[in-house]
């Protein structure tokens, strides 16, 4: 589905990602885990077209996308839920959702998509006329996900789902993501610091350290591996 081949990405003069190759297969849930500053958000921003790789390429269903502007990538079927939500704070919940359906392809389906999102997150329907910045953190995350789903994506990029949210809220939202994935067949690529949550949710996991991929495997196996247990969960290997 998504094929990343040997990308190098810079922030200005500073290289953040070194020769990263990843492939995201089919319609499952994939995660990229790593500590703070390891380059995982950079990889996500590069897929979304906000950063351009200096070397390497990214293709989506056989079409090269790393040369496209960000809004064209959304149109191609990849939507991003940004770190920290990044809602349009002064707009209503409704208008935020409306913004998500601004591409021509999504606009045609707007009403059906919105009805579905209200079905998935009923609280958003209750708060439809409220300003986005009056929502709680969890509701804001739901809105951010809903806004991205409005574009009718085939692949949803989620950056730090758990950031700043209570564990119970994280659990509920990650369950919803799982349902969306299973019922709608929308692929999910999750970038997380919360390693346990991410590996429990995903089928496939990748580990990034200092801008390089250092491990790939089935999520359940990674969760049990010494590499993950020592580095991220603070446990001694057997």
């Amino acid at each position: 589905m998504l094929e990343i081949t040997g990308i190098d990405v810079f922030h200005g003069d500073l290289q953040a990602v070194w020769d990263v190759s990843l492939s995201i297969e089919g319609k499952g849930i994939t995660t990229l885990i790593g500590s703070n500053g390891s380059g995982k958000s950079t990889v996500l921003s590069t897929i979304a077209g906000l950063l351009k790789p200096v070397r390497g390429s990214i293709s989506f269903d056989g079409m090269r996308i790393d040369t496209l502007p960000a809004h064209k990538i959304v149109d191609a079927g990849i939507a991003m839920v940004p770190e920290g939500r990044r809602l349009f704070r002064e707009m209503t919940v409704m208008d935020n959702l409306e913004m998500g359906a601004i591409t021509k392809r999504a606009r045609k389906m707007k009403n059906e998509t919105m009805a579905w999102i209200f079905d998935v997150f009923p609280i958003l329907k209750e708060r439809a006329r409220q300003r986005a910045d009056t929502l709680s953190g969890g509701e804001q995350q739901m809105l951010a996900i809903g806004r991205s789903l409005m574009s009718q994506p085939r692949l949803l990029l989620v950056d730090e789902l758990s950031l700043g949210l209570a564990p119970v809220v994280v659990q509920r939202i990650s369950q919803t993501l799982d349902e969306i994935n299973k019922t709608k067949g929308i692929g999910i690529f999750l970038v997380e610091q919360n390693v346990v949550m991410a590996l429990e949710l995903a089928e496939t996991g990748h580990i990034i350290e200092n801008g390089r991929i250092v491990g790939t495997g089935k999520a359940s196996e990674l969760l049990a591996s010494d590499q993950v247990r020592q580095a991220y969960l603070g446990m001694e290997g057997e």
């Binding site: 979304a48 809004h71 959304v74 940004p82 208008d95 601004i102």
Partner: peptide, 25 residues
Amino acid sequence: SRVGLGMEATRDDEEAAQMVGVNTF
């Protein structure tokens, strides 16, 4: 209009607007 919403999204957070598919330019 919808164009106005696109403008406001561009003003509020240009990068987030691009992420959800707004052609901010």
